[in-house]
Design a protein around this nucleic acid. Structure first.
Length: 253
DNA sequence: ACTGTATGACAAG
DNA sequence: TTGTCCTACAGTT
């Protein structure tokens, strides 16, 4: 989402045409207004317009933005929102959320999120307090957006593997030092992903040509990238976890 | 043509 | 914990 915010920033400062070919978004409310900024907070995108209204987008698991330059035609029927300037169009497809928000609504979205490792204002001490709350596993805590914002199932699996920490490790058992390393690893991993435009955690000569199926060390892998041990999958709070039993041995207090 | 699954989040039970 | 959103794709029939 931070990568998208960066790319969508090419529209900032312009009077943007907004349409909803699909008809499920009141595009006329912002059509023709100047886009003042595009910001990412965790997995949320907020596009601010001149009159103080923001478009709030969450992609969920299926949403995507498609960029057309030059513009080859009107948006397809399933396009929820098209933001366009002469020569460039961005089409939003299948988002889980696309809504108009006033300043209060915007504050509510941002206020409901924990610190974001990719933001300058993301406070690791606050994240440690929230993630280390005395209940549940570190795996569950990492996906809780109100504790730390932006981490999804891929980053969770990959960062815990990098930490040599099993998903079942109690969140409250992490030391300050361990959390500091976790935060630093997340920052590095997520910044790299913003750079790459995708999540690649394996070593690669040419990051452009890494096949999707081989781009991670444990997530959706059969064997551990580091040691070759068969990856073990499980479920925590309804989400699949991936871990290497060799690299991430069971934690014993 | 059909089935199963998914980088997410929420409400209902 | 399950169902839902109701898209996309890989794998199977």
């Amino acid at each position: 989402m931070h990568r998208l915010a960066r790319d969508l920033a090419e529209l900032v400062g312009s009077e943007v045409s907004a349409t909803s070919p699909q008809g499920r978004f009141p595009a006329e409310e912002v059509d023709g207004q100047r886009l003042t900024g595009v910001d990412a907070y965790g997995k949320h995108l907020l596009a601010g317009f001149a009159r103080g209204v923001s478009v709030h987008v969450h992609l969920g698991m299926r949403g995507k933005w498609l960029r057309f330059a030059p513009v080859t035609g009107p948006g397809l029927r399933q396009v929820r929102l098209r933001l366009a300037v002469p020569g460039v169009a961005w089409d939003l497809i299948a988002p889980s959320t696309c809504e108009l928000l006033d300043a209060a609504g915007r504050a509510k979205v941002v206020g409901g999120l924990g610190p974001d490792p990719l933001r300058a204002d993301g406070d690791p001490d606050e994240a440690y307090r929230r993630v280390g709350a005395p209940r549940g596993s570190i795996a569950a805590a990492l996906l809780d957006q109100s504790r730390i914002a932006g981490v999804g199932n891929v980053f969770r699996a990959e960062v815990l593997h990098g930490m040599r920490m099993p998903p079942t490790r109690p969140a409250h058992s992490l030391t300050v030092e361990e959390f500091a390393e976790l935060w630093a690893r997340l920052q590095a991993m997520m910044r790299q992903a913003v750079d790459d435009g995708r999540i690649i955690t394996v070593d690669a000569e040419d990051r452009l040509v890494v096949p999707e199926a081989e781009s991670r060390r444990v997530y959706k892998q059969g064997l551990c990238y580091d040691c070759g041990t068969p990856i073990v999958t499980g479920t925590i709070d309804g989400r699949t976890t991936y871990a290497c039993p060799q690299c991430q041995p069971k934690w014993t207090s």
